[in-house]
Nucleic acid binder design. Sequence first.
DNA 1: TTTCAAGTTAAGAATGATTCCTAAGTAATA
DNA 2: TATTACTTAGGAATCATTCTTAACTTGAAA
Lengths: 141, 141
Amino acid sequence: MKEKIAGTGLKVTHQRMVIYDAVLQMNFHPTVEQIYEDIQGENPSISLGTVYKTLETFVEYGLIDRVFTEEGVRRYDPNLEHHGHIYCTNTREIVDYYSEELNEIITGFFKKRKVNNLKIKNITLQINGDKIDPDKDITIK
Amino acid sequence: MKEKIAGTGLKVTHQRMVIYDAVLQMNFHPTVEQIYEDIQGENPSISLGTVYKTLETFVEYGLIDRVFTEEGVRRYDPNLEHHGHIYCTNTREIVDYYSEELNEIITGFFKKRKVNNLKIKNITLQINGDKIDPDKDITIK
DNA sequence: TTTCAAGTTAAGAATGATTCCTAAGTAATA
DNA sequence: TATTACTTAGGAATCATTCTTAACTTGAAA
Ligand SMILES: [Mn+2]
Ligand SMILES: [Mn+2]
Ligand SMILES: [Zn+2]
Ligand SMILES: [Zn+2]
């Protein structure tokens, strides 16, 4: 983890390691506030401003990703693999959705149908819906 | 247009007609502010708060759509057909992207691979990238 | 037509998420 | 250890969005 941060050219600080570690641990696409609260116990002196700045720095340097939900809420994603998101409007859960097959279908499609004059950075697929039974998980297949 | 609003059960007011009309006219996925500015000339008495509220009401009643860009900016979309969005990070343009073929591919995929415990409201596909020549258009195929 | 209840609006205040500022602190390097 | 560039805490500022409320409209009914 130290190496990951150093690898970008960023200085390795205590704050950055704590925040990076926290995001990696949290697999539910946390908000800034959730990350801030998570680290409060062990590191009460790290300020909210630092959490904001650090997370954006990480996104900028490609260490983590950022997602906006359908409602415009900013959430962070430690998972850099290319994957889709299922968003539940009532519980506000984000469930990762991987499918090699779907990836291939979509990238294959855009290989045929070329998008001109655009350097594609990423393609995101978001499935929005409501959980039917809020106590059960969303599962695929 | 009057009928469209009335059809939802909402009362037909001057403000709603003006705002609805403005959004339909604007095919570039405007922000709240852009819509507000657009109607200022003819209707300087319609307040910004009303524009906010009215647009959200329209979204709620299914008259228009709302999109968040990769940067989290709220933009409105009069186009209710199912379509994807190409977002250019440097010019902030949103280009609509229709493809019957891609629609079928994706919906077909999720027919096979069933998502359990979720009532799907919509599936959004967003292609993010940078325009290569900012003065030329983004075109497909 | 007139009346009336329910719904809508303008204006401005309030909120709240995010960004900015700056002086003090720290990491990397030699 | 000294130097430099970068980073941070804390708090202020910004700014998009929401809320509040009194006045006004709409649409339906009498
Ligand atoms: Mn947040
Ligand atoms: Mn806006
Ligand atoms: Zn994810
Ligand atoms: Zn569109």
